[in-house]
């Protein structure tokens, strides 16, 4: 069973690494989490992003939530913002599509065109 005391050890271990990479502009994964997104399945998508990123121990990638992005029929919507690059908007996601996006877009820098809003419209 996990206990709060584990956090102490995680803290020590993390602090050793954190000092190496403070305040560089990181990648942001923004998940639409309003009523429309949640009803369409955004929560498992967000969870899949968090687990994939944690599993690969990708530093400098943050997963955050936002409200309604404005195209409820295309939810779940995720925007990926890489510094100095154009924002990429993915639509109609499900947890199975997440690994590919993390691998090809976030790690290798090539957006997955077939899942983007451009391909859906």
């Amino acid at each position: 069973m996990k206990t709060l005391a584990d956090l102490e050890a995680i803290r020590k271990k993390t602090l050793e690494q954190v000092t190496l990479r403070k305040d560089e502009g990181g990648v942001r994964v923004v998940v639409g989490m309003a009523t429309c997104g949640i009803a369409a399945g955004a929560r498992p998508v967000m969870n899949a992003f968090m687990e994939e990123i944690a599993k690969r121990n990708l530093e400098n990638v943050t997963v955050t939530q936002t409200g309604c992005i404005g195209m409820c029929r295309l939810e779940p919507i995720v925007e990926i913002i890489v510094p100095d690059k154009e924002k990429v908007t993915y639509v109609k996601l499900n947890p199975d599509k997440v690994a590919k996006i993390v691998n090809e877009h976030i790690v290798n820098g090539n957006p997955v065109a077939e899942y983007t809003i451009g391909a859906a419209e």
């Binding site: 709060l4 956090l7 102490e8 803290r11 271990k13 968090m50 944690a54 121990n57 530093e59």
Partner: peptide, 22 residues
């Protein structure tokens, strides 16, 4: 309480996230 244990380390840190999930 958790923040007290974590100090300046964020919940968004991958290892913290995995721990919290478990």
């Amino acid at each position: 309480e958790m923040r007290q244990m974590l100090g300046e380390v964020s919940f968004a840190e991958p290892q913290v996230m995995l721990w919290l999930s478990e």
